[in-house]
Design a protein around this nucleic acid. Structure first.
Lengths: 120, 120, 120, 120
DNA sequence: GTGGTCTAGACCACT
DNA sequence: GTGGTCTAGACCACG
């Protein structure tokens, strides 16, 4: 197919999603310290500035808190975390439905497919 | 929310989806002529170049055929249309699951939400 | 005095404030196009990336809207603008009071001073 | 709001302000001994170096005097204290007006708000 | 020509 | 050593 609906997403968005996902899944706990920007950058093989952007966005989402000179930590405010989880679920679902309908698919038709795929 | 996962889709992709959707839904029939690029651009309020790109991509997807001096027409090859429909369904579902899982949601959890939203 | 309470603010924050101020004052009208990032950078004598950061923040504040390939425009949503104006007023006043009180000044005492200074 | 105008003030500045405020308010009297740097650091939950910097700045402002082997004391020179008080009032007011005007607010408009808030 | 993303590398403030 | 700011310059997507 020549057209790739939903193309390559920017690195920084992918990283944000990954961290959000890890928090939601519990892989990272409230209060945990994230790696330093430099360490993270090295691990992920990206530039330090890219990571700094990620950390800044996370803080603006209230998912993290920054302690100057100490590092970046997952918020201990569980409400913030739940809030983000719900926001994201809502958002993902809504946009998915939008795309679906613009393509002429019914929701039930796709749910069938998801159920098959989800079982694998 | 500061981060909008999955927004900002290019205009030309949105237009492609819209046309694909219209074909799948039957709003546009095989053999139908699409508006001229200029007319379409005017209607949609976008740049002529954008429409040209859309038409080019549609042709590469075998959804349309171009007759020089006459215009662009939806293919009369029903297999092509069905093929595109299935491709797109697959692709949409697969990428949706990818995003879901990277965010830590289960497929069933989202299906529940889709079912509620789909009913409206 | 050795201590300068309220030090040098980052350039990008100063630029954000300047633009917000210009919008609030009406120097820039809803719908107006902002200079391109390159042009603005040249004018202000700062780096292009700095301006891009400014434009991005402004968009996240809903003060501007970006049209891809066309430029950045002040939102035509007057509510957004009023909202930002009120937010900023509230914020400025609140933080001012906080500083005041931490320094042991009464609000009335400072109001007197402001009134004298404001008259000049 | 994504942008917090005037936040993120360095800890050591906050501490200086707090101590200045306590002196102005009379919570701390001329001649009083300040806690040792270690004790203060422990109390405030900050780094010892930070407190050392605070004490150093206070001494340069002539608000405190250091007696070797005994500790740091608030100056008994009332003129120094009054002087600092006036300096700070001036400075706070001036910078506040600067910010206000750069944001397009009138002084009277903010005075109204301050009066409402100050009454609480 | 428009904004968006990313890199490399510098310097600063805070702990 | 931590994050924050800024620069210079590259490349990409979009119109």
């Amino acid at each position: 197919m020549t057209q790739d609906f939903m193309k390559d997403r920017p690195i920084y968005l992918q990283l944000i999603e990954r961290i959000c996902g890890d928090v939601i899944k519990g892989n990272i706990q409230p209060g945990d310290k994230l790696p330093s920007v430099r360490e993270f950058a090295l691990d992920a093989g990206v530039n330090v500035n890219t990571v700094q952007r990620v950390y800044k966005e996370l803080e603006m989402m209230n998912l993290t808190e920054t302690k100057r000179g100490q590092g970046t930590f997952i918020t201990t405010n569980d409400d913030s975390i739940q809030h983000i989880r719900e926001q994201m679920k809502e958002q993902v679902a809504t946009q998915f439905i939008t795309v679906l309908e613009s393509l002429g698919f019914s929701v039930t038709e796709i749910i069938d497919l998801l159920q098959k795929k989800g079982g694998k």
